[in-house]
Write a protein that binds this DNA or RNA. Structure first.
Lengths: 233, 233, 233, 233
DNA sequence: GATGAATGAGGCTTCATTCAT
DNA sequence: CATGAATGAAGCCTCATTCAT
């Protein structure tokens, strides 16, 4: 039960302080968008500042250089994503669902928590700039890619051990899931823009299709589920 | 009937000319590599020239600007790839293989003809720079992406019609194949470099795994093939 | 009623703003001088910036390109010159002087208002670069050359109609005045520098001589004025 | 009575030799035109070579640098012009014409021998590039300007001494003639191009008008000639 | 803190000049 | 001699970064 005004400058100066505190994240949001859109080199710091509603000089009050801004963009969004993944991870490990359900759940929760948000830009960004920022890429790999893959591998492994899945190459089966995710990300940020006239890709339908095929592909002949043709959402 | 010196300047004067003829493609090769590695903006024309073994100025004898060099890189490699795809297309359409074999063949021939070459860089390049070169991206989409997807869609459709595959969402099932391909491309040029220490991805094993799961996922319960565990190549 | 410090930042913050306002015209002055001296192509933007006391980059804050700087140089000085010509025009048209006096006045006021200033450089500049900047030249012709020639033609025409001048080719008689002016301009900016050792040309004496001969040449035998030998100013 | 074939290689190799000897002057002609049109800096040596019908490299066989080419252009045409001026000079000095006739003749012969040819470009060229090539300009001044002015000054002086002309400032009266000439030159190469739509300047009429006014202006009241209105040639 | 004018290193591009053929 | 492919110094312009206000 903390008093609502525990800091001296809560009423008047508070608003400015909150604004001030918000600056960095407004800049990070603007930077994420622009880096994803145009790439690191083609993005001008002035454009980032402008999109965040501040002046060029202000950006340098919070980030010592453009490269540091880039690193901060990744770090910041990494944290957010990682927290969520962690929650997901524990929730799934604890339950007693079938491996198929766990995979279904993993993909679908990825979509709602990450795929449908601007966080997907981070993946595209890190991949695009991997060569120019190896430390950042390595960090991303350690924090995001490896844990996700480990989690998926464990689920698949358990499915095999339980006889739910066919006996297959568990390590590489993971890529069936990650490639499905990556394609959706790249479609959103690049492929889909190659030809705006071409038919839109409907994410839910895409995920349903991929899940249907992957699970059918993993499951042993006995457990083959009633082949649901995905509703054309 | 060969006179030993039919043209007086066949050896002497020819060397220059041969070099001149080779220059454009040497430059295009160098440019493809560097654009893929660092992106368009971060690649210096001087570096392209240096990798091709010529000086800065020479590049501009063959390409009027850096942007035109980029376009030429895509056009040039597009032609090569498209010719191969065409050959593949006709070979497959004419045969009387099962749809599964056709898909298997499509993926494997893609690997030998494209995936294992530096042509994969083109895909990564076009995707990375799609926003900054929309016309190039559109061209790539028309020339490469759409034909490939149409071909795959037709194969899958036929498999369904023949009862070989389950009745599923043929249009979206295509993405199971394209996402598998895209992931391999992106792994080669970006993901694999995120963490050099992480285990290498073996392309043949990757393709075998994806094929196994996709085909299992597509096939009707009856036709389920003997679940071959891919040899750890 | 003056408060000694009405605005807090009147002195401090104002200095920057005042500099910023002055920059464009400082740059235009420097550019005019250098373009006249060396020509457009041989003038380096860095030299213009240096003469204006700023760095290379600053120039581009105010003018988007070297060619635009050139256009601005002409436009800017055109305005100045044209305003004066307009004033002159009305002053002369309204008066009831003799045509001879009007011509005398025209030449002499041209000297004080234009000929003796750095504005003459504009004429040399536009003529020298006419082929490379046709639109600028056309503009100069419309704004400066044609009005001046029309004014002179009208004066001469009136002199002829009044019987003050001989009946001569009024249209071409104008060139006696304009050629006198052009020679002075070109002498100042080029001819006079051909041989620094050669005797200086004294502008007042030059104008007196030209006026003496032109007026003598125009006047009818009756009105021939007392042949004043120009004072060796 | 030289035999028509006194050199061994007169028939076959002669043509090539003549061509070879002609090369430098073809290059000089091309260079004069382009330097006049675009200025020294904006003229590309490749354009000069192309207009002369040879390759870039060939130009450098005859002229060690672009600057030397420029000097040669002036020197070469200077010689031609100076020879003519010399002939004119002696012809006039020897005769017993009136000073007025001599001036009339001087202007008219200038027109046919120089004004109507591409030699006028030389004047424009030297004036335009005077600052960047002071030695060339000085040479031009010594070789062309000073002799012409001296000649004109002597004619006018004699006219005054004989009582043919009014007693006027002989030294500056010269400028009435030179300014008339310069204007025609600059009109041909620059002013006339400012506004192609504006009425053409007819050189003969221009010269007639200027001569009429100048001579009227110089002559004493007694000798005033029948004021010929110049025929609208 | 916030601003935006100023800076100058660095990249793209041109073009005079060289030189192997 | 003639060619034109190759060179690289130099110029225009951009933009990350600084700093006076």
């Amino acid at each position: 039960m903390q008093s609502p005004s525990d800091t001296p400058s809560s009423t008047a100066a508070g608003k400015r302080a909150r604004r001030k505190d918000a600056r960095p994240s407004e800049l990070l949001d603007a930077a994420l968008e622009l880096f994803v859109e145009k790439g690191f080199a083609a993005t001008k710091v002035e454009a980032v500042a402008a999109r965040a509603g501040v002046s060029k000089g202000t950006l340098f009050l919070y980030f010592p250089s453009k490269a540091e801004l880039f690193r901060a963009v990744v770090q910041e969004n990494l944290a957010a994503r990682f927290a969520d993944w962690n929650a997901e991870y524990e929730a799934m490990d604890g339950g007693s669902d079938s491996a198929a359900d766990m995979l279904r759940h993993a993909l679908q929760s990825w979509w709602t928590r990450v795929g449908a948000t601007k966080l997907t830009g981070l993946t595209k960004l890190v991949i695009s700039e991997a060569q120019n920022f190896p430390e950042v890429a390595a960090c991303y790999h350690t924090e995001v890619v490896q844990p996700s893959q480990q989690l998926l591998r464990r689920v698949i492994q358990r499915g095999i051990e339980r006889g739910e899945f066919r006996p297959l190459d568990a390590e590489y089966a993971v890529y069936s899931v990650t490639s499905a995710i990556l394609y959706l990300v790249m479609h959103k940020h690049a492929i889909g823009l190659l030809a705006p006239a071409s038919g839109e890709l409907m994410p839910e339908r895409y995920i349903a299709s991929q899940l249907d095929i992957i699970l059918h592909g993993l499951l042993g002949p006995a457990q083959a589920p009633p082949s649901r043709i995905p509703a054309l959402s």
